[in-house]
């Protein structure tokens, strides 16, 4: 991979990166606030919230960087998010005490207009497209 721009960061991938960057900023800042002010209310939920924020940062960086290794990092980070939003989303509906409504993955990301649910799906579709276009080269 010698091109200056990584393939995952080209075209509409640019837009994906911008949304990931906003989510990284939003989720991380909010979880820092939650852990700093009301950690004892729902420790598990807020730790997972912080983890989600960190994974958004990793995904943002991995999509910007080029190369096979970063592609794999992006794949793992985005897949992790999908598992996270589906698992925590379901748990938050089943057990509202363990997972209060104000974490990024609660109720499948309803507090963030379901962006946390839509984003990993779009991300995986995008990675799939990038990979198949590279194989056809």
């Amino acid at each position: 991979m010698t091109s200056k721009i990584s393939s995952t960061a080209s075209g509409v991938g640019r837009v994906l990166i911008a949304i990931y960057a906003v989510m990284a900023l939003g989720a991380t800042a909010r979880s820092v606030f939650q852990i700093a002010t009301k950690f004892s209310e729902a420790p598990l939920a807020y730790v997972l919230s912080a983890l989600a924020g960190l994974v958004y940062i990793v995904a943002t960086v991995a999509l910007v960087r080029s190369g096979r290794r970063w592609f794999r990092v992006a794949l793992v980070a985005i897949a992790f998010e999908l598992v996270g939003v589906v698992t925590i989303g379901t748990l938050s509906v089943v057990d509202a005490v363990l997972f209060p409504a104000d974490t990024v993955w609660s109720s499948f990301g309803a507090g963030y207009l379901f962006v946390p649910l839509a984003l990993p799906i779009l991300g995986l579709l995008w990675l799939y497209r990038v990979r198949s276009s590279q194989e056809n080269r």
Binding site: R14, V15, A18, V22
Partner: peptide
């Protein structure tokens, strides 16, 4: 795509 990014930024601000 930069225009779309501008749009994403503005929508984020609205939210």
């Amino acid at each position: 795509w930069s225009t779309v990014v501008l749009g994403v930024a503005c929508l984020s601000i609205a939210v």
